[in-house]
């Protein structure tokens, strides 16, 4: 019982720190918007680092995932409904609602999240963070806000791009291997999907894009001394942010698509 209580308190503490950072950054963002002192160059650099550098990996992965999901769905539909006329539309809808946002966010969490926490960890153990404090520069304003904006932009655009890629791959495969007409495919797609689904995917992307930098930064900023500490911080950041992605995904699913 006591162990359970200790565990709960520890986990609560783990969640409280990123939340604190989140509020601090919102306040910082509002302040810097009023003073018009956002670091434009740094933000552009972060968007480049997060979005453009992750594009090839994510495009490749999503292409393969949507291929696989067409294959699996055609198998299921043949067994279940004894008809496979709706397969491509069906599998693409699952990709739009669920697979594209989650897979993109997982890949970003392991690429961007780990590098944010490793970078901040190295800055901490080489005392660069203390120097920032000495210069009266807030680490939230200086480091975190550009990464936050970069991550959100990256996640939203990459989710859209991956949905588009999934659409193209699915149409191609359906036309090539299974003999559907592209028009038929889009008909079945429009029959089942609405703008609501796309908005849901974007909401997911926004939420995951906020989650990744704050969780990773919270581990990086509290990194223990030594090279072991940096490795630990990066590992914890990846593990924790992917777990939180899954949990918040369930929350968004159950709220957004309320039956």
């Amino acid at each position: 019982m006591r162990a359970l209580g200790n565990w709960a308190i520890r986990e609560w503490g783990q969640l409280a720190y990123p939340t604190g950072l989140f509020w601090a950054s919102i306040v910082g963002l509002l302040k810097s918007l009023t003073r018009a002192s956002l670091r434009g160059k740094e933000i552009t650099k972060q968007i480049y680092e997060c979005a453009v550098m992750s594009l090839p990996v994510i495009a490749f992965s999503l292409g393969i995932v949507s291929l696989m999901s067409v294959l699996e769905f055609s198998w299921h539909m043949k067994v279940v409904l004894k008809q496979d006329a709706l397969v491509p539309g069906f599998s693409l809808i699952l990709t739009i609602r669920e697979v594209a946002p989650v897979v993109t966010a997982m890949l970003l969490a392991s690429r961007v999240g780990a590098s944010i926490s490793a970078e901040m960890g190295v800055m901490k153990i080489t005392e660069q963070l203390d120097q920032l404090k000495l210069l009266a520069v807030s680490e939230v304003d200086y480091l975190l806000i550009p990464r936050w904006i970069g991550c959100i932009v990256a996640n939203v655009t990459l989710t859209l791009i991956s949905i588009a890629i999934a659409g193209i791959v699915t149409v191609f495969i359906a036309a090539r291997w299974m003999g559907y007409q592209p028009a038929e495919f889009y008909n079945s797609l429009l029959l089942f999907t609405t703008g609501h689904d796309l908005e849901g995917a974007l909401l997911k992307a926004l939420c995951f894009g906020t989650l990744i930098p704050f969780v990773s930064a919270s581990y990086g900023l509290r990194c223990a001394q030594g090279s072991q500490g940096v490795g630990d911080a990066a590992t914890q950041a990846v593990a924790r942010s992917s777990l939180l992605i899954i949990i918040s995904d369930l929350l968004i699913n159950s709220i957004w698509w309320m039956p």
Partner: peptide, 18 residues
């Protein structure tokens, strides 16, 4: 150095996922 450990972690995570 220490930075390389962070990079290794990142590389492992991405390569494993793909």
């Amino acid at each position: 150095g220490a930075e390389e450990v962070g990079r290794s972690v990142r590389r492992t995570a991405v390569v494993t996922l793909v």
